[in-house]
Amino acid sequence: MTRPTTYLLPTLGFGAAQIGNLYRPTSEEEALGAVDAAWEAGIRYYDTAPHYGLGLSEERLGAALRYRPREEYQLSTKVGRLLVPGPGYGDDMANGFAVPDDRARRWDFSESGIRRSHEESLARLGLDYIDVLYLHDPEEGPLEQAFTEALPALVRMREEGLVSAIGVGSKDGDVLERCVRTGMIDLAMLSGRYTLLEQPAMRTLLPTCEELGVAVVAVSIFNSGILARHTPPDDATYEYGQASEELLRRARELATLAGEHGLELPDLALHFPLRHPVISTVVLGMRTERQVRENVERIAHEVPDEVWEIVDGR
Rank of each mutant, 00 (worst) to 15 (best):
M1W: 09
M1C: 12
T2V: 11
T6N: 14
Y7A: 01
L9P: 02
P10Y: 01
P10W: 02
P10K: 00
P10D: 04
L12C: 06
L12G: 00
L12W: 00
A17I: 07
L22C: 04
Y23T: 13
S27F: 08
S27G: 08
S27E: 05
E28V: 07
E28I: 10
A31V: 09
V35Y: 07
E40F: 06
G42A: 06
G42T: 00
G53H: 04
L54V: 08
R60F: 03
L65A: 03
R66Y: 10
Y67E: 15
E71K: 12
E71L: 04
Q74G: 08
L75G: 02
V79S: 02
G80F: 00
L83W: 06
P87A: 14
G90I: 06
D91S: 15
D92S: 13
A94P: 11
G96H: 03
D102Y: 06
F109D: 02
G113Q: 03
R116D: 00
H118C: 12
E120N: 13
E120Q: 15
R124S: 02
V132M: 08
L133A: 05
L133G: 01
L135A: 01
H136C: 11
H136L: 11
D137E: 14
G141Y: 05
G141M: 08
L143G: 04
F147Y: 15
E149H: 07
L151M: 12
L151F: 12
A153C: 05
V155G: 02
R156M: 03
R158T: 02
G161I: 14
L162V: 06
V163Y: 00
S164I: 07
A165C: 13
I166H: 01
D174I: 15
V175F: 12
R178D: 00
M184G: 00
M184A: 13
M184Y: 11
I185K: 01
G192N: 07
L197W: 12
E198K: 03
A201T: 14
L206M: 11
C209G: 04
L212K: 02
G213A: 14
G213I: 05
V214N: 00
A215H: 12
V216W: 00
A218C: 15
I221D: 00
I221L: 13
F222I: 01
P232A: 12
P233C: 09
T237M: 14
T237G: 05
Y238T: 01
E239T: 13
G241L: 04
A243G: 01
S244G: 06
L247D: 01
R249I: 05
R250N: 04
A255F: 01
A255T: 04
A255K: 01
A258Q: 09
A258K: 05
E264A: 15
L265Y: 02
P266Q: 01
F272W: 08
P273H: 09
V278L: 04
I279N: 02
S280F: 05
S280Q: 15
L284T: 02
G285L: 06
G285S: 10
R287T: 12
T288L: 08
E289H: 09
Q291K: 06
R293K: 14
E294Y: 09
E294W: 07
R298K: 07
H301G: 02
H301Q: 14
E302T: 14
P304G: 09
P304C: 12
I310E: 10
G313A: 15
